[in-house]
Design a protein around this nucleic acid. Sequence first.
RNA 1: GGCGCUAUCGUCUAGGGGUUAGGACGUGAGAUUCUCAAUCUUAAAACCCGGGUUCGAUUCCCGGUAGCGCUACCA
Length: 528
Amino acid sequence: MGRAERSPAQSPRSRYAPGARIEGRTMPDSTPSALSPRVRFAPSPTGFLHVGSARTFIFNWLFARHHHGTMVLRLDDTDVERNTEASVRSIFEGLRWLGLDWDEEYKQSERLDLHRQAAEAIFARGLAYRDFTPAHAGEDTQSGTQGATSREGAASREGAWLCNPGMREMSREESDRRAAAGEPFALRYRVPRGQGRILSFQDGVYGPQSKVADEVEDFALLRSDGMPTYHLASCFDDADLRITHIIRGQDHLTNTFKHLLIFEGLDAAAPQFAHLPLLVAPDGAKLSKRKHGPVVSVTTYRDAGFLPQAFINFLCLLGWSPKNDREFMSIEEIRDLFSLDGVNRANAVVNFKEDDPFDSKAVWLNAEHLRALPVEELARCIEPFLKQAGFQAAPEKVAAVTPLIRERIKLLSEAVSAADFFFVAELTPYDPAELIPQKGDAALARRVLEKAQEVLAATPFDHDSLDKGLREAAAALGLKAGPMFQPIRVAVCGRKNAPPLFETLVVLGRETCLERIGRAVEKLGDRL
RNA sequence: GGCGCUAUCGUCUAGGGGUUAGGACGUGAGAUUCUCAAUCUUAAAACCCGGGUUCGAUUCCCGGUAGCGCUACCA
């Protein structure tokens, strides 16, 4: 790396700008792709949709839509052992919830023949060889320094593993003979060595990258069961689907050198690359279900009552910034503002805690998006949560309640606890002491409630009339608003903290209010 | 072990050779209010360490340290 690979004129922080001429880039940019990029999101269905994957998908989508390009969804399901139908379903479920679309869809498993042919072609060109070394059975033999009795000793002596002995140099005759005899083998790329070859590319986020080829190990193209590896399948498909920009997690940054080699072996032009900083947990570790639980699954956010646009907004801010201090943005705004130039290079922490599973900024953004929604729409979002809680949530009722709780909830699911008293037939038992105002006694509370009964029975049930009537009643009792309203609020809502009183009374209706106040008076009876 | 990437308030980030280092979330205080919430004001809070270059580095370069990634016939 320490060589004069970057041109002096080029600032190390210069980034790839779409359509711009890049110094020292590997591939010609005369492709029409510069005008209409094709990007892909390629999840492997080994679990639910991960928030990190979701962000990668979102960034690809933003890039595609910003540049009026094409978004390809490709299921990278070459690992038959680990892929499951359930995972495929859950990934689509997550993507559907996000509400972002794609234009083309592929399944790698349906392209196996193509992948094998590609491997065959690379082999035919002499760029790959058969490796008859038995596959590692163990999991911890990752050093791979075959035959190493002490792999640590071997590793420290020899550095990284590059290839298995005797395989790379094996004559074609012997290789053919052993293959014909049915001996299993993996197909490995013959990484160019001893030629001082430098592999390099211009990363859209990380800038110029290069590595000496001698340090790249002879990676596998085909497993001994004939299945293509991720590297081969992915690169072949990227080339075959004419992907122009690969936007993916930074964990692939060093894999890119191998990919460059595969594209070369495929005799295909390499696309542009842009790697995204990783999303990590507060402990710095990569987000994992095992370690961090359901917070890494997109559906957890959905079920907790996040709005997809808020979730997307939050994820975009992790590792990207519009650089104008904007944070609360609609998807359209983000799409218009989006640029790889704004992508950061350092990993971003999703700041969740044990007791508080969601990043406070995500929650805040959700509250903002909630309030930005037209009431009718918000009501429609809230309805399922209410129903799930077992409430008879008729659309009209929900629509009436929504404006009262809109500023009081941060997550859709909180509507249940914020609005329960509108839906239950009977209030959950509360402490009658709550009915009594700060500086007052049960007798005062009783007077207030009885007065309220009078007023409510005789006043037209609209906000202004109730406001007027109840305030006059307070004056008549020689009370300020606080001590007057608290008993009523508690009687009617079953708690001290609730939406503004008059609106609440209106939505509840005269009958319910009177009934609940009557009950409150009874409760108070014991305390007199 | 090897190779690579990264490093600004607790977190997400802006910035960049000379700044009171900006914003946001969260936190504290106050205002407003029929409670809560929302809203407004306000406070505390950061340039990893060491060298170099320079009149001057948080910014550029080198080194260190730390974190992360890759080092699989996983993706």
